[in-house]
């Protein structure tokens, strides 16, 4: 009886029975997810140590006062958060163009992939340019690792915790953006030279896409923790 039933209804393939990917995902993509998970812990530890230090301080500089400059600013015309909100939107839009590049890759449209990758690279480069300008500006105001010209929100003297954390964490994030731009440039060259077309799939773009979105994701947290609250 049992054997008849099993021939009529073959047993459902077991998820972890082997012979196929239980996560229905390519090996490299899974490893990228694990890498990003570990990176999330690195950034999480950074931001939590920042939060701990902030909770251990009686007062803290006001971000609306510190980050109120923008390029070509007329004398005395401060506008808090304007420049950093532009940076945020640049990164969101570059994330969107990356999704579209991945999507075009699934359709095997080489030219569209190259076009959206190029836009993503431009977005990343613009973000890096903005960050370089901001660091340059803060440096000229006297801020650097170990130096903090900004008083606390209540007018008391501030230590150097604020600048140390700011430059370390935005620097680490900026380095991720820089790496992402370099990887995307490599991907653009490989796309244009037809490597992925010969390979028959654009899975590599999906993996770098994951990395690029993660960079955007980290910025959401850095932006909130340093500039807004």
């Amino acid at each position: 009886m049992v054997s008849t039933a099993s021939t009529l209804n073959p047993p459902k393939e077991k998820l972890w029975g082997g012979g196929h990917s239980p996560f229905n995902i390519e090996y490299g993509k899974l490893m990228m997810w694990f890498f990003l998970l570990s990176d999330a812990f690195t950034f999480g530890a950074f931001l939590i140590s920042y939060g701990t230090t902030r909770f251990a301080s009686r007062n803290w500089p006001n971000p609306n006062v510190v980050f109120s400059a923008y390029p070509f600013m007329p004398e005395g015309k401060h506008a808090p958060l304007v420049f950093v909100s532009i940076m945020t939107f640049i990164l969101i839009i570059s994330s969107v163009t990356m999704v579209l590049a991945v999507q075009a890759g699934k359709q095997m449209q080489k030219k569209t992939v190259a076009y959206f990758l190029l836009l993503t690279i431009i977005g990343g480069a613009m973000f890096l340019g903005c960050q370089a300008w901001e660091w340059h500006h803060l440096f000229h105001e006297g801020a650097w690792w170990g130096r903090n010209p900004f008083p606390n929100a209540d007018g008391t003297m501030a230590g150097t915790d604020f600048t140390n954390f700011f430059f370390t964490i935005t620097g680490f994030h900026g380095f991720h953006v820089f790496t992402g731009v370099v990887i995307n440039i490599v991907m653009l060259i490989m796309t244009l030279s037809g490597t992925f077309e010969k390979r028959g799939h654009y899975l590599m773009i999906e993996k770098t896409g994951l990395y690029w979105h993660f960079v955007d994701l980290v910025w959401v947290f850095v932006f909130t923790c340093f500039y807004l609250i």
Binding site: F23, I25, S95, M98, L217
Partner: peptide, 11 residues
């Protein structure tokens, strides 16, 4: 964007 919602539950 990272497409995690459309992946397998296990992932």
């Amino acid at each position: 964007f990272m497409h995690l919602k459309h992946e397998k539950d296990g992932l």
